[in-house]
Simulated scan of single mutants.
Amino acid sequence: MDFLYVKALHIIFVVTWFAGLFYIPRLFIYHVEAEKKPEPAKTILQTQYKLMSKRLWYIITWPSALLASFFAIWLLVKNPYYLSEPWMHVKLAFVLALYFYHYYCQVIYGQLQRDIIKYSTFKLRIWNEVATIILFAVVFLVTLKSAINWIWGVIGIILFGVLLMLGIRLYKKIREKKSWEKAEKEGLERE
């Protein structure tokens, strides 16, 4: 098969893998939020989120991860000189980090399927951004390739991550304030 076809298939499956990794933590968040709902809404929602998670995880995310890796290995076998490039070593380190992220999503998935809730929605929102940071890092590395540029790119990714965390904290405060204001308004209406 031609190199460009293999490369295109690799990119397609990387995109679908990331789509799964972006969406699965959102389902985790919704599942945990449903825990606070009264019955029967809690059971109905959590059952639905379990089903959605299972389909996303095993029909899209896992197959995409395996196929993206398969085509990546194929590319490296056809073009081993990439392995001598410093930027490729850094990229592969980020890919390894992505597999750790994927594995930990698998752990959370398994816990939620067994109705074990260990994480707050706030922690899951932060966790949701890890894949975004890895994606930015890999795209910059593959595009820029120069040692100085990827170092600046990685520093930029770290700063981007800090900004994301601050944004999440701000979002949490806004949600808490609106929730408090809504409760206060409902309390006044009852009186």
Rank of each mutant, 00 (worst) to 15 (best):
L45R: 04
P40F: 04
Y30C: 04
E39R: 13
K177N: 11
I157K: 10
L67V: 05
L170G: 02
F100Q: 09
V138C: 07
F100P: 00
L56K: 03
I174H: 15
N128V: 00
V130C: 00
Q46G: 02
L9V: 13
Y119V: 00
V162E: 02
F122I: 05
A34H: 06
F18R: 00
G161V: 01
Y104K: 06
D2H: 07
P25Y: 02
A19G: 11
G156H: 09
Y109L: 01
I29R: 08
V6A: 15
Y5A: 12
W17M: 06
Y103A: 13
A41S: 08
Y49N: 03
T47G: 03
I133Y: 09
S120D: 07
V77F: 12
I148M: 14
F100E: 13
Q46N: 01
H10G: 00
C105S: 15
I44V: 12
K78F: 14
R175G: 00
L170W: 09
P63R: 04
R125E: 15
F71S: 05
Y171D: 15
G110M: 10
A65M: 14
E33F: 03
K118E: 10
A41E: 15
V107K: 15
Y99W: 13
G167W: 11
V139H: 05
L4A: 08
T43G: 04
Y81L: 10
I108A: 03
Y104S: 07
R114I: 03
T143M: 13
K50C: 05
W127E: 06
W150F: 14
W152K: 03
F28Y: 07
A41R: 12
T47D: 08
K37L: 15
K50N: 10
V32P: 00
E176M: 10
V138Y: 03
T132P: 01
I11C: 07
A72C: 08
E181L: 12
Y5T: 13
E189L: 15
L76M: 14
K145L: 12
T61R: 03
I73Y: 14
S69C: 11
T47R: 13
K42C: 02
A72K: 03
Y103Q: 13
S120I: 07
E184H: 09
E33I: 00
V162P: 06
Y99H: 13
F18H: 05
K7G: 01
T43I: 12
I59G: 03
K172D: 15
A97H: 01
P80V: 04
K123L: 12
A97R: 03
A65R: 01
S53C: 01
E129H: 05
N128A: 11
E184S: 10
R190V: 11
K50H: 09
V130M: 06
I44N: 04
W74H: 10
V95F: 05
F160T: 05
K118C: 05
G167M: 08
L164P: 02
Y104D: 11
L164E: 09
K123D: 09
I108G: 02
S179T: 10
W87E: 06
K123F: 08
S84C: 00
K54E: 10
H89W: 12
I73G: 06
I12T: 07
H31M: 07
W74Q: 11
K50W: 09
G187K: 11
I116L: 09
R169G: 12
K118N: 14
